[in-house]
Design a protein around this nucleic acid. Structure first.
Lengths: 383, 383
DNA sequence: CTGAAAGCGCTTACAG
DNA sequence: CTGAAAGCGCTTACAG
C-alpha cells in the first residue's frame, strides 16, 4: 500500500466513482450511499491516501492556519501565551505558525509577509515596538487579534491585562510600607505595556506628595535590567563611606523596585545581590508575571501575577469566533492581574546595611549623601 | 492599488506580457529583458501583488515549511531549542510550524498528520515517549532530523548531548565529595534521554562499591519532581525522632540529588526546603540544563549545562543540508555538555540538621533509622 | 528573450 | 445519490 502518491483521483479510480464522491466522503458533505462510502474508505485505507491541504487551500483561497507572532518565544511569558493559544485552538483544525520577531518591526514585517503568502485564516499578534502593521494590511492575515500589547489605532480586538491599575496598586502598597523612593525598571519605551505600567506607577506617586519615582527603560532582558537596577542602586549611600551603622535620612536611591517582567525581575534581584544589598531589608521588590523561581527564592518574590493562560485562551477564542463569522467588536478586553504578596516587600530600614560594595558594571560609586539621580535621555524621572 | 486580488495574471495583463514572464521576474529564473523586468516590477508594486505560496506549493508538490515538534514549548529547554532552530533556518525561506505534543504519542500523531497534509520540506522532532513514527512514515515529512531524543531504529540523523558521560561525571563528583547515597530524579522511563542519564548514573556507582543510587522516574515537571524528591527525603532519619544533634551513621536516604532537567531541579530544591533541609549542608544538588534562576539561588545551583543553542543550530543545519540535497548520514551527533560547579555541592554533613519536618505531600514520615527505601514498580533502584 | 499549454490536488457550482 | 467541467495561483517543460 501507500503506492506512489495517492490522490482523490487514484482513490476514485480504484472504487469506480468520481473524484468528488471521494471528496464528499472526505468532507462529510452531500449525500453518499453507505455502500459507496464504505468502498471509498476502504480504498483510502488501502492506498494510504492522505488529503493534501495545499490543494484544498488553493481551491478555498484560504488556509486553515493561524499565525502567532510574539517578540521572543524564549521569554517564558510568550512561551506560556503561545501554549495557551495553542490549547484553545487545538481540535479546531487550524495549524499554528509560530513566529518570533525579536521585537523588531522589520523582522515582524518579514515574518508577516511569509505568513500572508499562505493566505491564513488569522493572526494572533503581540505587536512589536513600532509595528508597521497598517489597516490596509489587516485583511491579508484574515482575522487579527492582538494580545498583551495593543495595536494603536487599528480596529482589532485586543486582550490585555489591567497593567495600569495593577502597577498602581503595587506602588501604593510599597508607599504604604513607607517607601519614599521607588523605581520601575520598565521595558521598551514605545511598548504599550510599558506605557500603561508607567502611568499606573506615576498615578500612585502623584497621590502621595513627597514620594519620588524613577523609571528606567530597558530591553526587557535580565542583563539590561541588571545594568539599570545596578546603576540605580549605585546611587545609594555607600556604607563604606559612612560606616557600617550610619543612618542617612537624606539618602537618595530607591528602596523599592518594580520589575517589568520576570526576566527584568531576575535582573533586579541579581543587581541587589551584586551590590551587596539585601531583599527586602535594603530593597523591596515586586515582579510582574509570576515565574517558578520566585517561590524558590529567599525571600519569595512578591509579584503581580499576570493571567497569561486566560489571556491566551481568550485571544484564541476571539479568533475562533471571528473565523466562525461571528461579529467581534474591536478594542481591548481586560483580564485582571493579581498582586501576590510573598516576602520581598517590607518597610525600608532606616539603617543602611553594610554591603560589600562590589557593584558590578557601570554602577556609580557614591561617596557622599544628597546625590542626584542621573536621568539619561532615554529615561524618565518624576518626583 | 491593491485592488481585488492580484495574481501573476493580473500583473501580466497590466504589462502586456505572459504570466510566466512575471513568474520569471519573481523567481529570477530564465532571461528577462531589463525593460520588461522593470515594467513587471512596477505593475507588481502598483497592484500590491504578493505571491501566493499555496499555488506555488501545489505546483511544486512541496511546501517550503519545516515542522518543529517538541514535547512542551512551555518547558524552557524546548523554547530555547525552538529558538535556536528558528535562528538557523531564518533567511532560508522556510516557514516553521511549531507543534507541541505533551509527550503523548497520540497527540504527536495528530500533529504530524496535520503537518504532512502540507507536504512539508522537513521535520525537526523531539520524539515523544513511545513515538509512533515509523520508517514508512518518514518520507511524508520530507527530511527528518531528531534532536535531544533519539528515534530508535530509524535511519534519521540525530543531535544529542553526551548525557551518559556528563551524568556519570556529575555522580563521580558527588561520590568524590563523600556522598554514599545518591538519587537521580529522572524523567519519563521510556525517554532515550532518561535511559542514557540513568546509565551514566549507574556506571559511576558501579565503580564505587558501597555507594547506593536511587532512580525515580517522573513526568519531568516541577510538581512531579517535588513529590518524588520529597518522598525520598522523607526516608531520611527524622531529627524529630532523634534529637536535634543526633548523628546517625546508618542513615538511609540520599544526601545528593541529580535533577533530570531545570523544572525537575526546581522541584528538588523546593522539596528540600519543604522538608526543612538545607542545600548543600544536608542535600547536595546538581541540575541538568542551566536556567536563569540557578545563579540567583543561594547557594547557586551547580548544573550540567546542556548546549541547547548548539544543538538546535546543528539540527537546523542538518535539515538545511538535507534539503539542499547533500547526503547526511543517519545516527547521532554528540554535542558535549559541561559541568558548571557553583555552590550546591558539598561534602555530606554527618550531623543531621534540625528540620521543621513540615514535609509537603506524600512524604513518608520516618520514625527510626535503618529504613529501606521503597521501590515502586515504575521506579528503579540499584546499589 | 518570450509565450501557449498543461497540471499540481482539491472543491464548487451545476446537472442529472 | 452521483458525475463532468471549471478553476484556485503557480511553475514546468516545450516551443519559438
Amino acid at each position: 500500500m501507500a503506492e506512489a502518491k495517492a490522490t482523490i483521483y487514484t482513490v476514485a479510480r480504484a472504487v469506480g466513482v468520481s473524484a468528488q464522491t471521494v471528496s464528499r466522503v472526505l468532507n462529510g458533505t452531500g449525500q453518499v450511499s453507505e455502500k459507496t462510502r464504505a468502498a471509498v474508505l476502504a480504498a483510502i485505507e488501502a492506498q494510504g491516501y492522505r488529503p493534501n491541504a495545499v490543494g484544498r487551500s488553493l481551491r478555498a483561497s484560504r488556509t486553515p492556519m493561524v499565525g502567532v507572532l510574539v517578540a521572543d518565544i524564549g521569554n517564558p511569558f510568550y512561551a506560556r501565551l503561545h501554549r495557551a493559544i495553542e490549547r484553545r485552538l487545538s481540535g479546531s483544525g487550524y495549524s499554528l505558525m509560530l513566529m518570533n520577531c525579536d521585537d523588531d518591526a522589520r523582522i515582524e514585517r518579514r515574518q508577516l509577509e511569509l505568513l500572508r503568502s499562505y493566505r491564513p485564516t488569522g493572526l494572533v499578534i503581540v505587536p512589536s515596538v513600532g509595528s508597521s502593521l497598517s489597516a490596509a494590511d489587516l485583511p491579508a492575515y484574515g482575522h487579527v487579534v492582538s494580545v498583551s500589547r495593543v495595536l494603536d489605532g487599528l480596529p482589532v480586538p485586543a486582550v490585555v491585562t489591567d497593567e495600569r491599575e495593577s502597577v498602581r496598586a503595587a506602588a501604593e502598597e510599597l508607599i504604604a510600607h513607607g517607601h519614599t523612593e521607588l523605581a520601575l525598571i520598565s521595558g521598551p519605551e514605545q511598548a504599550s505595556t510599558a506605557r500603561a505600567r508607567e502611568e499606573g506607577f506615576h498615578q500612585a506617586l502623584a497621590r502621595h506628595p513627597g514620594r519620588r519615582g524613577i523609571v528606567r527603560h530597558t530591553d526587557g532582558t535580565r542583563a539590561g535590567a541588571q545594568a539599570a537596577a545596578g546603576e540605580l542602586l549605585g546611587t545609594r549611600p555607600g556604607p563604606a563611606a559612612m560606616g557600617p551603622a550610619a543612618t542617612n535620612p537624606t539618602a537618595t536611591g530607591p528602596t523599592a523596585m518594580v520589575g517589568f517582567n520576570a526576566l527584568v525581575t531576575e535582573g533586579i534581584v541579581s543587581a541587589i545581590m551584586a551590590a551587596g544589598l539585601r531583599c527586602p531589608e535594603d530593597v523591596s521588590v515586586v515582579g510582574f508575571t509570576d515565574a517558578g523561581w520566585m517561590t524558590l527564592h529567599r525571600p519569595p518574590i512578591s509579584v503581580i501575577d499576570q493571567p497569561v493562560e486566560e489571556m491566551g485562551a481568550l485571544a484564541g477564542r476571539l479568533l475562533l469566533d471571528l473565523a466562525a463569522g461571528e461579529s467581534v467588536a474591536p478594542g481591548p478586553r481586560v483580564v485582571p492581574s493579581t498582586l501576590i504578596r510573598r516576602g520581598s516587600v517590607a518597610a525600608p530600614s532606616t539603617k543602611i546595611a553594610a554591603p560589600a560594595m562590589k557593584t558590578a558594571g557601570p554602577a556609580t560609586q557614591v561617596t557622599g549623601s544628597d546625590t542626584k539621580t542621573a536621568a539619561p535621555d532615554t529615561n524618565e524621572e518624576r518626583s
